[in-house]
Design a protein around this nucleic acid. Sequence first.
DNA 1: TGTCCACTGGAACGTACGGCTT
DNA 2: AAGCCGTACGTTCCAGTGGACA
Length: 414
Amino acid sequence: MDEISVLDNVFERFLKGSKLFCDREILRHDYIPDKLPHRQNQIRYLGEVVAPVLRSSRCSNIFIYGKTGTGKTAVIKHVLAKLSIKAEELGVPLKTCYINCRLAGTEYRVLSSLCSAISVRVPFTGLAVGEVFDRFRYGLNSAGILFLPVLDEIDALVKTRGDILLYELTRINEALHSSKASIIGISNDLRFKEFLDPRVLSSLSEEEIVFRPYDAAELRDILWERARSAFFDDMVLDGAVSLCAALAAAEHGDARRALDLLRVAGEIAEREGAGAVVENHVRRAEKRIEHDRVMEVVENLPAHSKLVLFSVFLLSRAKISLAITGDIYEIYCELCGESGFAPLTQRRVSSLVNELDVIGLLNARVASLGRYGRTKKIRLGVARSLLRDAFVADGRLRRLIRYAPKCLTEIARG
DNA sequence: TGTCCACTGGAACGTACGGCTT
DNA sequence: AAGCCGTACGTTCCAGTGGACA
């Protein structure tokens, strides 16, 4: 069968097959629904805190924390959208903006996003942070507005280099005459507060809201709320929804995870022409999501990180499931030779191992082997077969997939 | 009980780069 | 064009360390 008729078949089957979704966009986690179940308290409280804005007064700075998928972002966007509408009715010059600090990446880029929110143009790079801040302050003052920026994943701002920007931001009102600003900070790292300058902390958390993780029952409600609009009637079995909720609840009550599971399960069911989404589809969705995640993360890894991961992969294949830094470095150097890279130092490789640990591709823990020194015990953080797929998809590493490192025998002998 | 291994991880520094201001 | 500036990525140096072993 040629390619065109294959595609025709695919399309035909899709069009003729049972239709389960009426609007799958509703299951995406950036979709902000009208109803946010089990967050009424937070919505009411946040509303009370920001309400003074409607009388052109500055509201308190707010600090919000809770793990991923606990509805922080959705609640804030929901409340601010409503607030903006009300402010417009009343003629209050309110300006809000939403910045994800981790996605922005650096202090500079966060500042430049703040600037663009109040229509101050700054170059991508080249200016000193202090200079950009001065322009921001000047621009804000001359705009004569109430400014309500949301800084999501605010911890990313502090971990990189101190909290100077936050300190300046929390004090900005002292320098403003005709504008007022309040900051809404969001963090999913509870230890964040420990790193913070106490002055910044007390100023930032004039009001504090905590988002507890959802439990399985709450997740079920959330899923049903969305599933009712996303799927046609009776196209999802209760068991499937409950399983999504249970799996996500086991993983710190992440609603995003639950929604992803349900959406992907629905896609799988629809593709195979099933009459409804059942538990088996959810199980398969779980595998699919993990597979796609690993493929994507590995694909976007820098070359040296890939080689380090590949070294652990080779060791694991040789039945050495717990490797130490020195062994990995030896294999890594050999692989560099094979693929024409100049090897990095062991110090650097040690950092790369830590980075791979953070994203979950490796598990590393420091272990002391007494006489035999102190090192890290490192093992794969995901299934070897998954990694194999990812490496085969990589042009450079596919060639090495069957490679047997020369130093392996010595390492195995220990 | 002291020694000593094989590192760890912090800190300072170097280099390349893009892009601003003057 | 020169002088800065921030960022990314890396190196070099080195003090610190948990626990097996003599």
